[in-house]
Design a protein around this nucleic acid. Sequence first.
DNA 1: CGGCGCGGGCGTCAGGCATC
DNA 2: GATGCCTGACGCCCGCGCCG
Length: 287
Amino acid sequence: MDALVEENGNPGGSDPLAAEEVGTVTSVGDQDSYSQDSTTYKTYLQVQSVIQPNQQSVIQTAANIQPVQLSKGNVILVGKPNSVIQTASGNIQTLQVVETGSDDSLSNDDDGSTKKRRDILTRRPSYRKILNDLGGGEIAGVHFVETTSLISHRNSSNIHVIPAGAIQISSGQGDGMHTLTMTNATSAGGAIVQYAQGQEGQQFFVPVVAQNSSGTMQSAQQMAEEAARKRELRLLKNREAARECRRKKKEYIKCLENRVAVLENQNKALIDELKSLKELYCQQKVE
DNA sequence: CGGCGCGGGCGTCAGGCATC
DNA sequence: GATGCCTGACGCCCGCGCCG
């Protein structure tokens, strides 16, 4: 029973994020693609877990969260060998538990590595990293297309900006999708995009080849137009990023609330168990 | 019905951070 | 150092409920 450790003893105070900030010795997922801090959040968000470096810890799933799927080769790193990995359904998966007390990457033998380690432990990963991990790396590209649809509450057109340089315009009804491919759209001197109007009021970008007839000089007006287009593109990206950030933040807060519920239930169960054990002890003492 | 407060969402800016 | 991404902060707008 001592393996069930409440996470509230974090030194960071009442900050709900503090537990994650100190407990970064958990790693689930693709070790090649993510840093330790981000995978900590992945673990937390998928299975409602917190593992602190100096404690035996619990990984516990919430009722409405899918059990974590550990593919071959994934490792959970814990600081103490007797930690408990627990799921709501009672099914305990086979896991590889590795003691990390002597991990070179976490050792603090000099000031530089100490600072680096502290930075790793305390830096809060972005909501994008946290919540993109929810969908798994294999669908990252699809997820990006999904989440970059520019559905404004003031108009109904959809625009999909794809990292490879293609722009997709969807009708929203699934009856056709036009794709405009841009090459080197983001590199200096490459294609320039500008707004255009679709058939049903759709807004989209059209690549425009930079006009420097002899490849030497652009007029001031052209440069100003290019600057304006760049600004529009930057604003568009930032608009979408802000929307995505808000969405992920909301999702993250939901996950935190779920964890509160899980921990409250766990706390209540422990209190009940303690009470019954006390009663049993008192009875035996009287007899 | 109009005014008011509140909550939520959005766009934009600015600054930090990561990557090249 | 340049560039792009992420996110907190700010102001604005809109919808909703409440009150006189």
